[in-house]
Design a protein around this nucleic acid. Structure first.
Length: 766
RNA sequence: GGGAUGAUGGUGGAAUCGGUAGACACAGCAGACUUAAAAUUUGCUGCUUGAAAGAGCGUCCGGGUUCGAGUCCCGGUCAUCCCACCA
């Protein structure tokens, strides 16, 4: 509804608006329906699209249906496969074994972005860690650009940019290695606080770290294994948030490369295998986690940083994590933390042991799924040639029909008709990849397909992208901040690098997050059984009243609550509009809506003004990209209230004629049905939606009289009516006549006067 | 722990630049119309005080800047969202 009101207003302002609609149709809901009711996902999805499209059309949304797309259509997903192969050719899609998120309920792996607080974004089931060989997209190669270009996205909400910044999680530090005593092994660590390196009293290593097996002493081997096993059975959720810091000694020691101190190596549960190097230097004096762990394990605390201005210290009661000045740090003693970080990194680099390093918290995007209802990944595995791409001329790799879906294991893997194929290189027997793509793959580029939806030779024509892109106004929920909106930026930058799109390398110039719609304070969902029957509500209240209500309850970025009482105000409004116009139906085209009528009385003048105030509000809210149509609709209320009132007393007034005939034009973007009906009944033959909107006129917006606020010492003491443009002296004269003002002045001297023309006069007295 | 955003009547909200706080609507109350109800319509509706005119208070709390603060600054509380044993 919001997008439609924007598109309609822009169109009536004379812009060429592309307002398309498509269906993100692959994904788990269809597959789950198949499991639960034995439905064919294909049929189920088509039925859903049909029903949703019917409802969207019912709401009077003016999409360009000739550009409609559905991602489950082979016409669409063949280009998914095509794009996947381009990424593959350029090394941006790769298969690798790695610890990944596994949802045991949905029986598939998930991207990190799809794990919310350790749970599956779809079914809320706790996610497990598994080592699996999976397809990834190298989004981390674009980390720096994805992060840096956030600054350029001034049309995006700050919170979304902050979320992406958080998610990318850049951190600058130093990576360097410790030698292991009596071993050739070295253990690399990453730290942002290399200035604390002389305070290292132990090394902490993740249990999965490959070095563990190599360095653990026989005496400690069984304890370490037992510890690692005990962690394996726990979900990531338990490991991170619910468990205390634990650890076991490996029996091995490392050597601090700068101090040559001998330090114990521990395996701990609080070091993550996937971040940084999987190993951390333990500095209890200057890191809260390390302090906590050292205390539990009786490890020494060695302070090497002191707060500026202090010198000797009692034993630390808590970690001192601030920057400061180095002590007991060899050559570096006395330096500030900032200087020391650079100097120590340089020294480590000179020794060939390390270097400055930038780490990102986010990982490559895991795109393969062990599910049926998605785009097949166009790769085959040949016994002779290994992994091979499906050639472009064999696309699309069609998703087979009538595959049994049980919810156990990958459906495609069990379908020999699908998996058995010939190797595109040697022609020998080969097996197709049975995983499908994450649905976010499709949704990362669909906006480009809208430009060229029926192109059979390419996903889109670059010249069309040159003409239309980037998207001027993107509307979507905030829940996609680190999913769809990040992936799309990545894809678009890739397309830009390939020369498939031009100009800015960002797909969405302006982004607006629309709030959710609640029903009586509850989230609408099928599982709660409280989805408002659109058909039924439309039946009782009318579509235009629904549209108006959705825009009116709350500013569009906020969560709105659908209440059955609330909509009655809009139903009344629509009825009032009709009643106000009804008497004019038979007086066809009696008024030129482009000519502002001459009026005599203040009431008539006020009505003409109300028309222009409302028209201006719609335009201002649109062009300012604020979209607070709730304020615009309030002004429509005032417009119609003024019209109804004057129609009672002076039904033949030129102002009433004007206001009646202008009304369809002003409400057209918000209540398109009644607007069209009224327009026709007033004798117009062409659609109101092809008209230009009413251009706000300064003359019509001008007022004859203003209310001047008179303050004494900043407190309001009187309000006086005056003509606009009144001079300060005249205003003062008027003000002094007011008894309330005189009482406050009480003969005191006016020290200062502040005059805001046509608004306010403030008298400051001693 | 870090980050972002917010807090205005019984309710949703308005006040876009520092200049009339509460527009507009919902709910409520009282009246008109009606046999009655619905619909429609008129009036009232931030709090305290007052018969009224009016006066005082009032935008989460405490400070500050300013002639003037819902709006700007500092400190705090609470709420929502994001990240988080990220080294």
């Amino acid at each position: 509804t919001l997008g439609d009101a924007i598109a309609r207003t822009m169109r009536m302002l004379g812009y060429n608006v592309l307002h398309p609609m498509g269906w993100d149709a692959f994904g788990l809901p269809a597959e789950n329906a198949a499991i639960q009711r034995g439905a064919d996902p294909n049929v189920w999805t088509r039925e859903n699209i049909e029903n949703m499209e019917r409802q969207v059309r019912l709401m009077g949304t003016g999409y360009d249906w000739s550009r409609e797309i559905a991602t489950c259509d082979p016409e669409y997903y063949r280009w998914n496969q095509w794009l996947f192969l381009r990424l593959y050719e350029r090394g941006l899609a790769y298969k690798r074994e790695a610890p990944v998120n596994w949802c045991p309920n949905d029986q598939t792996v998930l991207a990190n972005e799809q794990v919310i607080d350790g749970r599956c974004w779809r079914c809320d089931h706790a996610v497990e860690r598994r080592n699996l060989s999976q397809w990834f997209l190298k989004i981390t190669q674009y980390a720096e650009r994805l992060l840096g270009d956030l600054e350029k996205l001034e049309g995006w909400p700050e919170r979304t940019r902050a979320m992406q910044r958080n998610w990318i999680g850049r951190s600058e530090g130093t990576q360097f290695s410790f030698g292991v005593e009596n071993s050739e092994e070295r253990i690399s660590v990453f730290t942002t606080r290399v200035d604390t390196v002389f305070g290292v009293t132990y090394l902490a290593v993740a249990p999965e770290h490959p070095v563990v097996e190599k360095i653990v002493t026989n005496k400690h081997r069984s304890a370490v294994r037992e510890f690692a096993e005990s962690l394996k059975s726990r979900s990531e959720l338990e490991r991170t948030s619910l468990m205390e810091k634990q650890g076991v000694f490996t029996g091995a020691h490392a050597l601090n490369p700068l101090s040559n101190e001998r330090i114990p190596i521990w395996v701990t549960n609080y070091v993550l295998a996937e971040y940084g190097t999987g190993a951390v230097m333990g500095v209890p004096a200057h890191d809260e986690r390390d302090f906590d762990f050292a205390r539990k394990r009786g490890l020494p605390v060695a302070q090497v940083i002191i707060a500026p201005g202090t010198d000797v210290q009692a034993p630390l009661q808590a970690a001192y994590v601030e920057d400061g000045r180095l002590i007991a740090s060899g050559d570096f003693t006395g330096m500030s933390s900032a200087r020391a970080r650079k100097a120590i990194t340089d020294r480590l680099a000179a020794l060939g042991l390390g270097e400055a390093q930038i780490n990102y918290r986010f990982r490559d995007w895991l795109v393969s799924r062990q599910r049926y209802w998605g785009t097949p990944i166009p790769i085959v595995y040949c016994e002779q040639c290994g992994e091979a791409a499906v050639p472009d001329d064999q696309l699309p790799v069609l998703l087979p029909q009538n595959v049994p879906i049980t919810g156990e294991g990958s459906p495609l893997a069990r379908d020999p008709a699908f998996t058995n194929t010939a190797c595109p290189q040697c022609g020998g027997p080969a097996r197709r990849e049975s995983d499908t793509m994450d649905t976010f793959f499709e949704s990362s580029w669909y906006y480009l397909r809208y430009l060229d939806p029926h192109n059979a030779r390419a996903p889109w024509n670059p010249e069309k992208a040159r003409h239309w892109m980037a998207v001027d106004q993107y509307i979507g929920g905030a829940e996609h901040a680190v999913l769809h909106l990040l992936y799309s930026r990545f894809f678009y930058k890739f397309f830009h690098d390939q020369g498939w799109v031009f100009g800015a390398d960002e797909p969405f110039t302006r982004l607006f997050h629309q709030g959710m719609v609640l029903y009586n304070g509850e989230k609408m969902s099928k599982s709660r059984g409280n989805v408002v029957g659109i058909d039924q509500t439309a039946e009782t209240n009318g579509v235009d009243a629904m549209r108006l209500f959705l825009l009116y309850v709350t500013p569009p970025e906020d969560t709105s609550d659908w209440t059955d009482e609330g909509i009655s105000g809009r139903v009344r409004f629509v009825n009032r509009v009709w009643r106000a116009c009804e008497p004019f139906f038979d007086r066809a085209r009696s008024t030129d809506v482009r000519a502002i009528p001459r009026v005599d009385t203040p009431e008539e003048k006020a009505l003409v003004r109300a028309v222009h105030v409302a028209a201006k509000s719609a335009i201002d809210e649109t062009l300012s990209r604020r979209f607070h149509y709730n304020a615009t609709i309030a002004k429509l209320d005032e417009y119609v209230n003024a019209l109804t009132a004057l129609e009672q007393s002076k039904p033949d007034s030129a102002a009433v004629h004007y206001a009646v005939h202008a009304l369809p034009l002003v409400i057209a973007p918000f209540a398109p049905h009644i607007a069209e009906e009224l327009w026709e009944r007033m004798g117009h033959t062409a659609s109101v939606h092809l008209e230009r909107c009413i251009e706000p006129s300064a003359e019509a917006l001008a007022v004859d009289e203003i209310t001047l606020v008179v303050q004494v010492n900043g407190k309001i003491r009187a309000r006086v009516q005056a003509a606009p443009g009144i001079t300060e002296d005249e205003a003062l004269k008027l003000a002094m006549e007011q008894t309330g003002v005189q009482a406050q002045l009480d003969g005191k001297e006016v020290r200062k006067r502040i005059y805001v023309p046509d608004k306010l006069l403030n008298l400051v007295v001693g």
